[in-house]
């Protein structure tokens, strides 16, 4: 399986599709509630001047996640434009 790539790894300006979420517990639910459900598309749009967090375009809204949180979200970049 091609699933070692996380949301934190994809470069700014590129897109990916979520395959799974690694975190368990309440944070998992928070990520899901934000619209980070498997199958949905995410665009990495900009990084903070200090390098962390990164802002993503998720279902019509810009949401910033710290890189350590974003690394809990596994993505697939194939077939996403």
């Amino acid at each position: 399986m091609h699933s070692s790539l996380s949301l934190a790894d994809i470069p700014v300006g590129s897109s990916a599709r979520i395959t799974s979420i690694v975190t368990i517990g309440p944070n998992r639910r928070r990520l899901l509630d934000l619209g980070l459900v498997p199958g949905s598309r995410v665009d990495s749009i900009r990084r903070s001047p200090a390098g962390n967090p990164t802002a993503y375009w998720i279902k019509g809204t810009v949401i910033a996640l710290r890189n350590e949180d974003a690394s809990q979200i596994l993505v697939d970049t194939r077939g996403v434009f």
Partner: peptide, 9 residues
Amino acid sequence: ATCLERNLN
């Protein structure tokens, strides 16, 4: 209205 899908949740 600009991001209805997430709001419909």
